[in-house]
Design a protein around this nucleic acid. Structure first.
Lengths: 194, 194
DNA sequence: CCGATATGTTTACAGCATAAACATCTATGG
DNA sequence: CCATAGATGTTTATGCTGTAAACATATCGG
């Protein structure tokens, strides 16, 4: 019941088995039902069945644990986009955008955490799995190889889907599939000067 | 030195003068140098020179105070956009977008708070001052009156600047004026299918 | 002028992050 | 095979937090 089931190779040595992974899993599970601000180290420790301060043997402080969770969130987002691109084939660019927003709507707290706690970090996450690279790669394909144009194109696309996701998460606009299409498929933006 | 100097008409009746306004001002001032998560009711009360629980005579709980601060943030953002539109003249649409991002960069915590704590509320903020309406109005002008097109255009523009602002605030991309222009002025997006 | 009401205070409590000292398990080298 | 060092977990303690309850006082309406 308290099984960990994470990717770490060591099965169950030491005292707990793999407390670090268990805490991470508990944290990610908690994020499915609450906001990041109600995440409590003590509660996670309680859930995993360990004393409150055991956490500090694996993470220097709360920020560190949240950071690890954020990294996992980023990885999952990248995975979603990659899969969406594969499934979509020729419409890959739009598909990754849609996947981006869908992931945000499906994992609101994790999505927010991922971007709040992953500023300027490059630790242990393959560059190619990042949302930005994902978009850039597809943008390059769409723009036919022009480096500068591709970069701008990717940036605009990223800002667009990120903004859409955020506005929906914050309840500023309805989190509605039709609206996503309207924004991602619409061709009107910047057709002429404004 | 502890003067309040807010818009409320009553100058200094009652015990404190206008504790509510003072707390709000202290909160907004605190947001200039720290994140919303380090805002503490007790600290604000201390700064204003009042007991910790006095806050509860004016706000039912912490959320309520943060909500009031958020509303003020939204109002200031709207004001910035309005001014930018006036100053820019014909380039009004792009100018409001730029003002949006600049406001976010200048007031990161307030900007974030405004959007996090203002879900589905319409209390006491003139609709016309909201960012969304601002954009919609200018979009309508730019698209020549087509209601549906204008709405989509506005939504895309909003998502774009909001996403750009967020990505910069979160350190995902450099908060750099040239990048803002690149995203707002660039005409490449959706010129052809993708 | 008096009583009601708005405002502010004192006291209290539970929960939080985290530090320090202590205990125990495991792995490794003699 | 065993001692010992390091990794892991626990106990205890501190000072912060939000907020509830009871109390005090200042202001205003009658």
């Amino acid at each position: 019941m308290v099984t960990v089931s994470t990717s770490n190779p060591e099965p169950r040595t030491y005292h707990h088995g793999d407390l670090r992974a268990a805490l991470l899993a508990a944290g990610l599970r908690a994020l499915e039902t609450t906001g990041v601000s109600e995440i409590s180290l003590r509660a996670l420790a309680r859930e995993v069945g360990v004393s409150a301060t055991a956490v500090y043997r694996h993470f220097p402080d709360k920020r560190a644990l949240l950071g690890a969770m954020a990294l996992e969130g980023l990885a999952r987002l990248g995975q979603m986009q990659k899969q969406a691109a594969i499934d979509a084939g020729d419409q890959a660019f739009a598909a990754t955008g849609r996947a981006y927003v869908r992931f945000a709507l499906a994992n609101p707290s994790l999505f927010r955490l991922a971007f709040t706690h992953c500023a300027g970090r490059q630790d242990a996450l393959p560059q190619s799995d990042l949302a930005a690279s994902m978009l850039l790669k597809n943008a390059a394909r769409a723009t036919g190889g022009d480096e500068v144009a591709a970069r701008r194109y990717a940036l605009q696309a990223w800002a667009l889907v990120h903004g859409l996701a955020m506005l929906m998460l914050d309840g500023q606009i309805p989190a509605d599939e039709a609206l996503i299409d309207q924004v991602i498929d619409g061709r009107t933006l910047w057709k002429k000067g404004a």
